[in-house]
Design a protein around this nucleic acid. Structure first.
Ligand SMILES: [Mn+2]
Ligand SMILES: [Mn+2]
Ligand SMILES: [Zn+2]
Ligand SMILES: [Zn+2]
Lengths: 151, 151
DNA sequence: CCGATAGTGAAAACCGTTTTCATGCTTTCC
DNA sequence: GGAAAGCATGAAAACGGTTTTCACTATCGG
């Protein structure tokens, strides 16, 4: 698969997936470098981790730009985000467009995407019983992956 | 029910639920005021909200103290904590000692405690299938409560 | 090339939370 | 009662991840 390219405008008021009429999208060195890094990294990583990784590779890119692209990619569903126990946001390339959750390693960040009709049904039922509407849920599973558990 | 009293030492190395031999627990005006506020507040609130509420009631208490007590209370299982979408920690008096989750109103913070054998089993199964050990999970459901939905 | 303008990034602001530390309060011991 | 011991308090400062600012740069249609 070719590296991700293109993107969207950063300007205010732009929220549709299509660029606003009269605007253009520019491919930049930085966007491509980030996409390529996300392609390689196995698990969930913080923005600062990813930035450090890019620098390690010799890329010239600012932390602000990493944050900006990650924000857009996650809005577009191209990367998943979770919050670790310290409240730090972690990012990882998303592998499916279906609704899903993760089993993530606390130690190395490695993550497996899982789908589960059972939880979805449970969440909807429980919320309905409480009389709540416009319902939404977060489900994250953390543990030690086989590799980290072996240590 | 009488207001919560007692507590635990703040010193390092104290983690048991029983006070360390030779130390005593002090009931302070501030601890009591916080307990009483938690008793009244219906839903999940931020530490700053709770502090503001206490000040509104005329209590003289510092924000640091509110944070300190909430931290201890949550470690002891007397209050539940969740993270809102901005990553801010919200607190609420816990009503049960059983493992449980919440259906929480995005708008007013009102929350219902729910237990669900189904999710617990699902989480354990999914993690085991991925070969993860020492597993743990977070499950939170958000929506609009009946009152807020009516508006 | 040029001009319009989206993208970049160093530095500063933001903001919830934690740490510091001097000053209270209780409790304990005499 | 008095004094010493040490937990509790809270204003102020530090912390750290993230966002904002804004002057500058790079891209690309024409
Ligand atoms: Mn789900
Ligand atoms: Mn559970
Ligand atoms: Zn691992
Ligand atoms: Zn509500």
């Amino acid at each position: 698969m070719t590296a991700w390219r293109g993107g969207r405008c950063y300007g205010a008021g732009v929220s549709a997936s299509q660029p606003v009429r009269g605007t253009r999208v520019r491919g930049t060195r930085q966007a491509e470098a980030l996409a390529s890094a996300l392609e390689c990294l196995a698990g969930f990583r913080s923005a600062q981790d990813i930035h450090a990784e890019l620098r390690r590779r010799g890329e010239r890119i600012g932390l602000t730009t990493v944050y900006r692209h990650l924000m857009v990619l996650s809005e577009d569903g191209a990367v998943d985000t979770i919050r670790d126990e310290d409240g730090e946001t972690l990012y990882r390339r998303c592998e499916t467009s279906e609704h899903h959750h993760h089993v993530t390693c606390r130690s190395c960040g490695r993550s497996v995407e899982v789908e589960g009709r059972a939880v979805e049904l449970w969440a909807d039922r429980v919320a309905a019983e409480a009389g709540f509407v416009d319902v939404d849920h977060t489900v994250e599973i953390f543990g030690l992956c086989p590799a980290c558990a072996a240590k």
